[in-house]
Design a protein around this nucleic acid. Structure first.
Lengths: 211, 211
DNA sequence: GTCTATAAAGAGATAGAC
DNA sequence: GTCTATCTCTTTATAGAC
């Protein structure tokens, strides 16, 4: 039996099913991230996956189901950089590493960034539970870490939650507003994220180092 | 004749026409800013303006025409804060005032912010000319001002274009990602922008003051 | 599992009465 | 100027053959 068994297996159990699901999720990420939920079409997603539309609907029963599946698959990835902020590490170095991880995320996973940007712009109803639950909890936990660092005189005093917002905003900007950044910098300017890394490290570290 | 004359007047010339156009543009801003171009519907816009769909199409010949009209109407407003950066002023005080104006814009005009965010997320094709033209020119002009301030030792050395990007990102974040910010901060937390103002002024000023 | 055909609803735009 | 009715195309989803 094993993976190629055919009877009595739920959706996604055989090798070909997992492959097709993965192809569809990649295609859906691409389309949803550029268009947003409402404007994306199943035609686009199916075409991007090299599949027919009814076949897409064989794997995911509705447009909303594949949208949720894409969001779920990327949520963990999205929280990873902040999870990595180590309470035992050197404060300034930990913030520096967090900024670096977030910028890498904007460079390597811009579609995921835009997917969330689109969702939150619309009001974020679909991921509200994740935002008020795990996301909020994680932010509060790491904010407490930063507060302890400040109390110990190892960081300049700043509101830790707004600090996290500022790191999100500045780093994700290079994924979400890529079109504007390239339009302003011009085509020749090289990788915007390299310049961003130098600038942001300098700005945040000079602003955060205790004096 | 004057304003109430009825014959031989182009669209938008009479008082009632201007009123209806303004109502439609307000409604269109509201709908396009939350949904983006493709997902917004003329039904929503007409309903929001208390008008029938054919009547909307009497004032604006197509969906794209009203979308462009909304974008055009808000573009000037959008560039104002940066235009106000005074080369003759005190550098640190000018940056501080610029951040304040941008935060006021996020508080008072969040819909305009989301309208642009949606447009740029999709690739910004409709406003590409504005971005590579007037926007790019304005950014380059103000970057030169900042560079002169740095050369004169009146600001710490930073890449001025990425500095402008960082101010855009952090301030517009409070409009564009409002849903996430409220989810993380909780309902009780008061106006997020007040906390943002304190934090951002401190971060940027400490990062920029010459030492 | 995958396809063709199609039902059903949505949405942009037009016709024509008033 | 504004409305009702409608045309046409798109899009989600289903039916049913293979």
């Amino acid at each position: 039996m094993g993976e190629t068994g055919s009877a009595a297996e739920g959706r996604g159990r055989t090798r070909i099913q997992r492959l097709n699901q993965a192809r569809l999720l990649d295609a859906a990420l691409k389309v949803f991230s550029q268009e947003g939920f409402r404007a994306a079409t199943l035609d686009q997603i199916a075409a991007e996956a090299g599949m027919s539309k009814p076949n897409l609907l064989y794997y995911f029963a509705s447009k909303e189901e594949i949208y949720r599946a894409v969001l779920d698959r990327t949520l963990d990835l999205w929280l990873e950089p902040l999870r990595g902020l180590d309470p035992q590490g050197d404060p300034v170095e930990e913030i520096r590493a967090y900024i670096r991880r977030k910028l890498e995320m904007s460079r390597d996973n811009p579609q995921e960034s835009r997917l969330y940007a689109n969702e939150i712009l619309r009001g974020g109803a679909v991921i509200m539970a994740e935002m008020t639950g795990p996301l909020r909890a994680l932010v509060m936990q790491k904010a407490a870490v930063i507060r302890r660092w400040i109390a110990a005189g190892r960081l300049a005093p700043h509101d830790p939650v707004h600090l996290i917002f500022a790191i999100w905003a500045t780093t994700q900007h290079y994924a979400d507003f890529d079109a504007q950044i390239r339009a302003v910098l011009g085509e020749d300017a090289g990788d915007p994220i390299e310049g961003a890394e130098r600038f942001l490290q300098q700005l945040f570290i000079e602003g955060l180092r205790p004096r």
